[in-house]
Design a binder for these strands. Structure first.
Lengths: 143, 143
DNA sequence: GTCCATGCAAACGATTTGCAGAGTT
DNA sequence: AACTCTGCAAATCGTTTGCATGGAC
């Protein structure tokens, strides 16, 4: 995601309105490396924006996705997470606590799809994710 | 998944009861290459087993997972799919119609996790999946 | 007869939708 | 003023849970 000011400009350019709610959500996302869920974002805004609604969080995330400013992570079957870093990278999630970390590696060349599949599919993308136990959970967890 | 008779034996060995419902679900799964969801299984059984419940489908899938007879696919964010083929392979899903195909390839060596991550995580597994448009949807779809 | 499994209904949790009123342009 | 956005409430949908009855052993 570009910085807040630049995204605001992108909004104006596209005819999207710049509302206090949208700015607040952008501020939460800017430089955010925690891979928040919609709920995480909602909760982190509740104090300063008590009237913020889930609808607005979801709407804004959808808009930012459309603009290509954030990416949706499908690493967690239970809920979607969002990442303002749209450069090519991957993720690992702790199966105990749900913590998600970045993995900066490019596996594009490494995972070639067999010819046979290419004959039957127009491949648009792929997704690689890892699962494990983070340091904390290795020491404290018990599952 | 082993064949129905063998899984029935595995059930008995573990003290799990062999019920008509469980057998029916096993029969749906044996050799099944369609990667059904719980709902798909439920629907395909409704006619011959009108009293079959979702609870039983979910319970049985859970049991089969525990026994390592099937694997749960997380390729579809909307719902879980199940695969009786537990050998190492991957999948591709058509983003239009949801059809899932097998990809028989082993990317284990290809996707090495950076040292830096290994220091912070005990990696237990990974997941690689592809997305695209199947032949049918390339010709007929419009998204 | 014991105990696990089934099936119904209700609960749950993430996400989506309908819509009236509010705010941006 | 026009038109989008917000926020509330309700709906949706896959999955889980509580529990009484039923069936496998």
């Amino acid at each position: 995601m570009k910085n807040v000011d630049q995204v605001i400009r992108a909004f104006r350019d596209r005819g999207y309105k710049v509302t206090p709610q949208r700015i607040a959500i952008l501020e939460v996302l800017e430089g955010n490396k925690t891979h928040p869920s919609a709920d995480d974002i909602y909760v982190s805004l509740r104090r300063k924006h008590p009237t913020m609604s889930f609808t607005t969080v979801y709407n804004t995330l959808e808009t930012l996705k459309e603009l290509g400013e954030i990416q949706e992570l499908t690493i967690d079957q239970r809920r979607l997470h969002y990442d303002p870093d749209i450069t090519l990278h991957h993720h690992i999630m702790c199966t105990q606590c749900g913590h998600i970390d970045d993995i900066f590696a490019d596996y594009t060349q490494a995972i070639q799809v067999p010819e046979e599949i290419l004959r039957r599919f127009h491949v648009n993308g792929h997704s690689v994710q890892f699962y494990g136990l983070c340091s904390y959970c290795q020491d404290h967890g018990d599952a």
